[in-house]
């Protein structure tokens, strides 16, 4: 199959993300990248786990964390993972409008998550004087959770750009791998968050 081929629902391949050589390369290359991202987050998690009790006399995780806020944030991100599955489902059915809609919902949920995180950081800094430089815990916490938040922000920009750029083009074999890979990235962000809410927040509340 060729990148510029005009396609209909009938001729659209079963796996549009891997129908061209470019798509195949994007697919495998992106998984290499995700393997690397796993290692990046591994170092940040390991640092956090080693230093999570080093408060230097400042606020501890038990004092800081609010279970309700973390729960709402988790639900937002988890749901956004499902909505991007819906988007890819519609992509495979060659339903461009529906795909764009569900990616749009994903972006809105991601944005809500990000706003909540900014509120949370702001709250810690002003209510508890808990900053990046306060303690080893502070450095480890903001670097780990902040790197994840930066990934969310980048993902939002990425998906939004794809949606705007291709709004009038429709779906083809050139942009299908791009959408597919963006959705993989979004799921990966959720994978990391599962460990953040467990290792940082829930374990931080247990003590």
């Amino acid at each position: 199959m060729h990148v510029e081929e005009k396609l209909t629902a009938e001729t659209f391949p079963e796996q549009p993300e891997k129908a061209t050589l470019e798509g195949k390369n994007k697919f495998i290359g992106f998984w290499v990248f995700l393997g690397g991202e796993t290692v990046l987050f591994a170092t940040l998690f390991a640092t956090f786990l080693a230093l999570r009790d080093s408060t230097a006399g400042g606020a501890s995780t038990q004092e800081l964390f609010d279970i309700k806020l973390v729960f709402v944030a988790t639900m937002l991100l988890l749901t956004s993972s499902l909505t991007s599955v819906y988007a890819i489902y519609h992509m495979k059915n060659f339903q461009f409008g529906k795909m764009q809609f569900w990616f749009g919902v994903t972006v809105l949920l991601g944005l809500a998550f990000l706003i909540l995180e900014i509120y949370e950081f702001n709250h810690y800094m002003h209510e508890f004087e808990f900053k990046l430089t306060s303690s080893a815990l502070g450095s480890a916490f903001y670097t780990l959770v902040g790197t994840h938040g930066a990934h969310v922000a980048f993902g939002l920009l990425w998906i939004t750009t794809l949606m705007i750029r291709n709004a009038k083009r429709g779906l083809n074999l050139y942009n299908a791998p791009k959408y597919y890979v963006a959705s993989l990235y979004w799921h990966f962000i959720d994978v990391v968050w599962v460990f953040i809410f467990t290792v940082v927040y829930l374990m931080g509340m247990v003590g």
């Binding site: 995700l34 393997g35 290692v39 390991a46 640092t47 080693a50």
Partner: peptide
Amino acid sequence: PQFFIWSGIFVTFLTVLAFM
């Protein structure tokens, strides 16, 4: 993908173990 992700998980396991 399986190879890359499981390699990443293996490195994660080693890193966390070493730091802790």
